[in-house]
């Protein structure tokens, strides 16, 4: 059975439909890239996955649990900006990933010590151990995003949602972040949804690429129709999945 199931989801703001009839199911551990033109409901779809918004029709289920009505521990998120708490140091930010669920939002005594040790391990993995006591405002954009990912993973979510996480980064940092994210995923086997504008990034990182677009377009009233998933590419093996031969063809195999 699939891990994340989106069944017949519609979302409209007022009378304006944003997305229509979205059906998709995702297995555990898949990396889903979501692309599409601006205003085609990618971010709305992510907010629905996050349960920040509730669909007007249809439902989103994670691991068979009843549809969530508000964001919770099972979904981790990293936004393009404002993903870390500016008033906490880098280490406190990672500790917060575990401690905010407590009644007072913090750890005390031995728990705090243990959480700090775990946070330092996470920071070392994110390459941020040398800035553990600084405030996020002093970090570069790439470091802030690494921190945001580390913080989200510290809470051990079922799925990780990334909303254009590298959109504000320069190309070099972006490439470094791709490697970082790949390593992290290889380690954790996390189910990831990533919205991006960058097609290359989408195919490079994703196992599947979902394309959001409007299937019908009314020239008189472009906002009449909502968008839906128009393509669902298999992006493994560099986007050419059929390169891996599944049957014995006895043709051109005997090169070696």
């Amino acid at each position: 059975m699939s891990f994340v199931t989106v069944t017949d989801v519609f979302q409209s703001y007022g009378r304006r439909p944003i997305i229509e009839q979205v059906n998709v199911s995702v297995d555990e551990g898949e990396f889903i890239s979501i692309v599409g033109a601006s205003g085609c409901g990618k971010s709305t779809f992510l907010r629905l996955l996050l349960a920040q918004e509730n669909p007007t029709r249809g439902e989103v289920r994670i691991a068979g649990a009843p549809p969530a009505v508000e964001p919770g521990l099972d979904r981790g998120v990293v936004f393009q900006r404002y993903s870390v708490f500016p008033h906490m140091t880098v280490r406190e930010n990672v500790v917060a990933g575990e401690s905010l669920r407590r009644p007072w939002g913090r750890f005390f005594g031995a728990d705090l010590k243990a959480a700090r040790t775990r946070a330092d391990e996470t920071l070392a993995r994110c390459g941020l151990d040398h800035v553990a006591d600084q405030y996020p405002a002093t970090l570069s954009g790439g470091m802030q995003q690494r921190l945001a990912i580390g913080q989200a993973l510290a809470a051990k979510p079922r799925i990780l949602l990334l909303d254009e996480p590298f959109g504000a980064l320069d190309p070099g940092t972006r490439l470094a972040m791709h490697d970082f994210l790949r390593d992290l995923r290889a380690e954790t086997g996390m189910t990831v949804f990533m919205v991006t504008h960058d097609l290359e990034e989408a195919f490079k990182l994703g196992d599947r690429v979902l394309v959001f677009d409007k299937p019908r377009w009314d020239p008189q009233d472009p906002s009449l129709n909502g968008a839906t998933i128009t393509y669902d590419f298999d992006a493994r093996d560099g986007g050419i999945p059929f390169q891996t031969l599944k049957e014995d063809t006895h043709v051109l195999q005997d090169n070696g």
């Binding site: 964001p71 919770g72 870390v84 009644p103």
Partner: peptide, 17 residues
Amino acid sequence: PQELLVKAQTLGASSWV
């Protein structure tokens, strides 16, 4: 920023926290 409030919710924070 709304993002921070959503982020805190995904980390399991209650309204009080």
